[in-house]
């Protein structure tokens, strides 16, 4: 202890006993530093889209016959959007088939345009849209909420047309 400014040290009462633990504080400070780095990494990953919308998350798959845009990382009970572009069949219909279990893991809030009918065929749910003549492509927007946390897998294809390959849907639902 430097003694430069303490001439009357003996006249003072003895120093207060304050419970402290410097080694504990040193450890705590080190852990806090690590915590801040982890927080920064988490924020950076969130900006990139690991926990929801963002470049890491957005997926576009398919071709002119059937294409789908969706988020790879979604959240339970939070809205997410699917955008589907499909070429109508010769019967002026678009038939979108989703894996049944996949569709049942979602709460569908809206489908635009409104489907003409919905059918269940084997393990698929078929959503059929009526299309006007000479329509080259139809855009369908589905708003839904995932119901359960964890991986969510399924696929989407054109119902009754084996020439168009099914598009796998790989999503992860954060709690």
């Amino acid at each position: 202890m430097p003694s430069r400014k303490q001439p009357a040290a003996s006249s003072k009462p003895p120093p207060a006993r304050i419970l402290e633990d410097l080694s504990f504080h040193r450890r705590l400070w080190a852990i806090q530093r690590i915590g801040w780095v982890v927080a920064l990494v988490v924020i950076a990953l969130a900006l990139a889209g690991l926990f929801g919308s963002g470049p890491l998350s957005s997926v576009r798959a398919g071709d002119a016959a059937l294409a789908i845009e969706y988020d790879r990382f979604v959240r339970r009970d939070a809205p997410t959007e699917f955008r589907i572009d499909a070429r109508p069949s010769a019967e002026n219909e678009v038939r979108i088939a989703f894996t049944r279990d996949y569709l049942h893991s979602l709460r569908i809030d809206s489908i635009l345009p409104y489907p003409q009918r919905v059918e269940t065929i084997a393990d698929d749910v078929l959503i059929v849209f009526r299309v006007g003549p000479q329509t080259p492509s139809v855009r369908i927007t589905i708003n839904a909420m995932p119901l359960h946390a964890g991986p969510l897998r399924g696929n989407v294809r054109i119902g009754g047309d084996a020439s168009v390959p099914p598009i796998p849907l790989n999503q992860f639902v954060w709690p």
């Binding site: 202890m1 040290a9 402290e20 633990d21 504080h25």
Partner: peptide, 24 residues
């Protein structure tokens, strides 16, 4: 208790500033 609630830390002792602790 220490882990959950922290421990008091002396920043000035006998009129002397403890700079390194204050920075932390």
């Amino acid at each position: 208790e220490k882990v959950l609630e922290d421990v008091p830390l002396v920043l000035v002792a006998e009129g002397r500033l403890l700079r390194d602790r204050m920075d932390k």
